[in-house]
């Protein structure tokens, strides 16, 4: 098992957001996490990635057999966890090229690999840019600075392609994308699917799942995963909304 989350509770400023999340992800799988606004989807992603503002009060997150909870953020990343951000931040003056080169070499160093040569690195950049149809110009620009919403999301998938993570968590990568960009990004993600890695997509919409077809769909509601099913579950949600789930929960 790649990722095993067991009874995870996490809070911020004393307010509990995650209230006992259980989740298992195996290599080769694509999971979708859906759920109403503000129920803790991004929080779950942040906690897996190790964001320190969230305090884990109970439970565990085990990745490739190791507990992540005592690992700093960068170590989790080097272990193979990638987070595609819902709101990618701007880093003025730092070119994407320089940013990716630093990141990739840090990750390689952690894994006992030599840094990539300049030529090999640039070749890899070119290859991965094609994957998400990024124009060359973009990579000379500062990280996310002045990018359109769509460009930011493409850039996240580009970085995912560059770093070849084992577990990718993509937080609303579809939001802000036009129809063509959605297809391009989804195709990029699909190209990165393999039997060795896993992808968790957080989304509100079925249209993304038309392209990236999930093996398993979860509904996160009020800090818990309250429903898990196959890809049909997403279709059902698309049709009926979340009301019936809320009712079900209240009925309990």
């Amino acid at each position: 098992m790649l990722l095993h989350i067991n009874d995870l509770h996490a809070s911020i400023n004393g307010k509990e957001i995650l209230k006992g999340v259980n989740l298992e992800v195996n290599a080769g799988e694509v999971h979708a996490i859906m759920g109403p606004n503000g129920t803790g989807k991004s929080t779950l992603a942040s906690v897996i990635a190790g964001r320190e503002v969230f305090e884990v009060t109970q439970g565990d997150v085990v990745f490739k057999g190791k507990s992540l909870l005592d690992m700093p953020v960068e170590q989790r990343a080097r272990e193979g966890i990638f987070l595609g951000f819902q709101y990618p931040v701007e880093i003025p003056g730092v070119s994407i090229t320089n940013f990716m080169r630093t990141a990739l070499n840090e990750i390689r160093k952690y894994r006992g690999l030599e840094p990539l040569s300049g030529a090999a690195f640039l070749a890899r950049m070119e290859e991965k840019k094609k994957l998400v149809e990024i124009q060359s110009k973009l990579t000379n620009r500062s990280v996310n600075e002045g990018f359109s919403g769509g460009e930011k999301k493409k850039n996240e998938i580009f970085q995912m392609a560059m770093l070849e993570p084992t577990l990718s968590i993509l937080d609303e990568t579809d939001s802000g994308l036009d129809i063509d960009a959605l297809r391009i990004v989804a195709n990029g993600v699909n190209a990165l699917r393999s039997t060795d890695n896993a992808i968790v997509v957080i989304t509100h919409y079925q249209r993304l799942l038309d392209y990236i077809v999930p093996d398993i769909v979860h509904v996160l509601y009020e800090g818990r995963i309250v429903k898990t099913g196959g890809k049909e579950l997403a279709l059902e949600l698309e049709e009926k909304g979340y009301e019936w789930i809320k009712k079900e929960m209240e009925g309990r």
Partner: peptide, 29 residues
């Protein structure tokens, strides 16, 4: 910002290098 640091760290870059990167970016001009 914490967001900038977290973003860098999430890509495998440790705090110190992240700060170096951000500062060099800031001073690039």
């Amino acid at each position: 910002s914490d967001d900038q640091l977290f973003y860098c760290q999430q890509r495998g870059i440790d705090t110190e290098s992240a700060i170096g990167l951000i500062v060099n970016g800031y001073a690039r001009e």
